[in-house]
């Protein structure tokens, strides 16, 4: 009943030009989202400027589903107490933890150790086998801003692919059918 007259009528009424225009505006939305993301990468210097917290290892500061805004400027140094997002070899998902110890050599190479606020031990057990320290190249970004709950949407989308496709289909249909 949903599609038999109402929506199809709308589509039918449009001529070819209008339909193309709608497709174009849909493409505009997608490409502007991509542009914003890539633009943020340039501005923040981080390969993923916005991350979603997936675990409770930083509770009560960050909970699952919270959003973090990262920067990764090479000129500002890593210091103890900072919340860094880092990648470990063999793990797909980056980790958000706090820097606990740091040693810097004369030539500027830094090695540091991290720990989650809610963990009782440091992260050496999470690093790659044999890895004792993190270095700058492991860092994806440093947390600079915080927004609660918003990331739950992406968590649901990842956990329930059907939900993701439903949302995408609804958005696509809305953009194509909707006429201003």
């Amino acid at each position: 009943m949903l599609f038999d007259q109402g929506v199809l009528d709308e589509l039918w009424r449009m001529n070819k030009r209008q339909f193309l225009y709608q497709c174009l505006s849909f493409g505009m939305i997608v490409s502007s989202a991509l542009m914003i993301w890539k633009g943020l990468m340039v501005v923040t210097g981080s390969e993923s400027p916005i991350v979603v917290v997936l675990s409770g290892s930083m509770e009560p500061a960050f909970h699952r589903g919270d959003l973090l805004f990262l920067t990764n400027y090479q000129e500002d140094p890593v210091r103890v107490g900072e919340i860094v997002v880092f990648k470990v070899e063999g793990r797909d998902i980056p980790i958000v933890h706090r820097v606990l110890k740091l040693h810097e050599k004369v030539n500027g190479t830094v090695k540091f150790l991290t720990k989650g606020d809610n963990n009782s031990v440091d992260d050496r057990g999470l690093y790659a086998p044999g890895q004792l320290w993190l270095t700058k190249k492991d860092v994806v970004g440093r947390a600079r801003g915080f927004l609660p709950y918003v990331g739950m949407v992406t968590i649901y989308m990842n956990e329930y692919p059907k939900f993701k496709y439903a949302v995408l289909a609804c958005l696509g249909l809305y953009v194509l059918v909707h006429r201003e």
């Binding site: 009560p60 103890v80 740091l102």
Partner: peptide, 14 residues
């Protein structure tokens, strides 16, 4: 002598 800059967190509290 080995490291020009060292930081160690010895205590924290939430």
């Amino acid at each position: 002598d080995d490291n020009v800059f060292n930081q160690v967190v010895v205590w924290d509290e939430i």
